[in-house]
């Protein structure tokens, strides 16, 4: 699971789970906070669909944090004002970039949970889509020559 896949799922996992992971990592590693979790903005860009012209849509409120765990840098960012979540994602980022074998077991456990959470999120979206699917239009031709 690469950073993109991991963060796609982690952005929507329950707070309690992140709190548990935070506890695991803080127990096993030496954490230094480089940049405490702080609110900020990320400017969102979009691309117009024909000429592929890129433009700025507006800013997203985010909270981001930078830490080191055993000297390895990690960065976490979430949408909204959620300092604990941003901090925990930074911890996760650090251990996933660490090569120390002591993290192997933790990463494996988190990977398993992330896969499970990813599947739950997929099912949730599939259910939402099923609601929408009920509104699919079935056109009937009323008069044809």
């Amino acid at each position: 699971m690469n950073t993109r896949e991991r963060t796609e799922i982690a952005a929507e996992v329950p707070e309690e789970l992140l709190a548990l992971w935070k506890q695991w990592i803080e127990t096993l590693g030496m954490v230094d906070v480089i940049h405490p979790a702080t609110m900020g903005l990320v400017m969102m860009k979009a691309e117009e669909s024909v000429a592929k012209e890129v433009f700025h849509v507006g800013e997203i409120l985010t909270t981001d944090a930078t830490v080191t765990v055993d000297g390895v840098l990690g960065y976490g960012i979430v949408m909204g004002n959620h300092p604990d979540e941003a901090y925990t994602l930074a911890l996760l980022d650090a251990i996933y970039h660490a090569s120390d074998l002591k993290w192997t077991n933790t990463k494996e456990q988190i990977d398993v949970e992330l896969m499970y959470q990813g599947e739950k999120q997929r099912q949730q979206r599939q259910q939402e889509y099923k609601f929408i699917q009920r509104t699919m239009v079935d056109f009937e031709v009323m008069d044809a020559d």
Binding site: M39, G40, L41, V42, M43, M44, K45, A46, E47, V54, V57, E59, I60, L61, T62, D64, I77
Partner: peptide
């Protein structure tokens, strides 16, 4: 929004 720093830019959304 004017009180907060801009930290980054996203990739263009798809």
């Amino acid at each position: 929004r004017s009180t907060l720093p801009r930290q980054a830019y996203t990739d263009a959304i798809d």
